[in-house]
Design a protein around this nucleic acid. Sequence first.
DNA 1: AATGAAACCTGACAGC
DNA 2: TGCTGTCAGGTTTCAT
Length: 327
Amino acid sequence: MPELPEVETIVRGLARRVVGDTITSVWIGSRPQPLKSPASAIVKILEGARIASVHRAGKHIVFELQRPSESASATGEQHAASKQHATVKKDGAAERRKSSAPGASRGLGAEKKQAPEGRKKSTAAELDPAPHWVVHLGMTGRMVVCEPDAEIAKHTHLVATLASGRELRFIDPRMFGKLSVHASAFDPGGVEPLEVSEEDFVALFRGRKTPIKSALLNQKLVRGVGNIYADESLFRAGIRPRRRASTITREQLGKLYQAVRDVLREAIALGGSSISDYVDADGEEGFFQLQHRVYGREGEACQVCKMPVRRIVLTGRSSHYCPKCQK
DNA sequence: AATGAAACCTGACAGC
DNA sequence: TGCTGTCAGGTTTCAT
C-alpha cells in the first residue's frame, strides 16, 4: 500500500532507470477503470515522448515529458499543449483552469529549447509547457521496468516500450490505481508535509471538527499521508485518532508536525534501502520495513507503557492507538 | 460547507 | 480440497 515514502522510493528508482529514455510505443489493456484520461489521449501524449524527469507529488508519480515538437518552436509548443489539453477532460474544472493559465500567458523563452541531455532537475519555469503523465498506484499498483521478454503479469494495464529496449509496465490487480495525462502542469492540491512550514501545517486544522486522523488522511489538506503513517504519527504525537482537530492545542499540533515529518523521513530512509529495486522486474519486497509502533499491533503491549494497543474503525479505516499514551 | 458512509475492486487468508 | 466470508484501504461519490 504505497503511501508517500513508498512512492518516493519508487520514483527514485524510476528516475534512475528511465529518465532520458524515449517512449516508442504504448500498449493499453482493455480494462477502462485505471484510465482517467481517454486511452487515445494517453497514447497520443506518450508515444514519441522523451522522459525528461520523474518526480513525486503526494502519492502521485509524475513523469515530465518532452514531445519531439517541443524543440521546434515555442509558439508551436503552446499551441500543441492547449490542443492536447482539450482532449483530456476528466479532471475537475479547478485543475483545468490552473493548468491552462500559465502556459497560455507566458512568453516562453528560449532557455527551454536546448535542455541538455544529462539534465536531471528542471526548474518550475522549464517544466511549464511540458505534458505530464501521472500515475497513482492506489492500493495495489506497481510500476515495473523490465526486459521485453519478461512475462506479462496478470492485471497489466499499460506497457510502454522504451527506445533503450526495456519496457515500463503498470500493473494493478484491484484497479484502484489511476493513469492520466495532462497537457501541462499537474497539481493534486494539498501541501507536501516535508516541505510545508509548521505555521502553514497547523493552520490546516484550525476550526475543523473532523477527527484529526480523517484530516490527516484528507489529501486536499496534506498529501501523501496514508493510514499507516497517520497512525504512527499520531502515536508519536500522543494524540488519539478520534480527537476533533479543533480541540487540539497549538503545542500538540506542533508535535504532530514534527511526528509526521520524522515518520515519513525514517520510512523513506528505510524504504530506500529495502525496496530500491522495487521497480525492477518483479521485486516483490514488502514496503513495510518501518518498525511500526502501533499499526497492526492490536492487543500487543505499547512499547512505551505496556498497555495493550487498541484498534478502532474510524471513517471506515482501522486505526491503532495506545489508550494511555494518546489523549 | 463539512462530514460520514458506501462504493469501487481483487487477492489473501481464516475457518469450516 | 474447495468453498464462503471477511478484511485490506486510497479515493470518489453520494447522502446528510
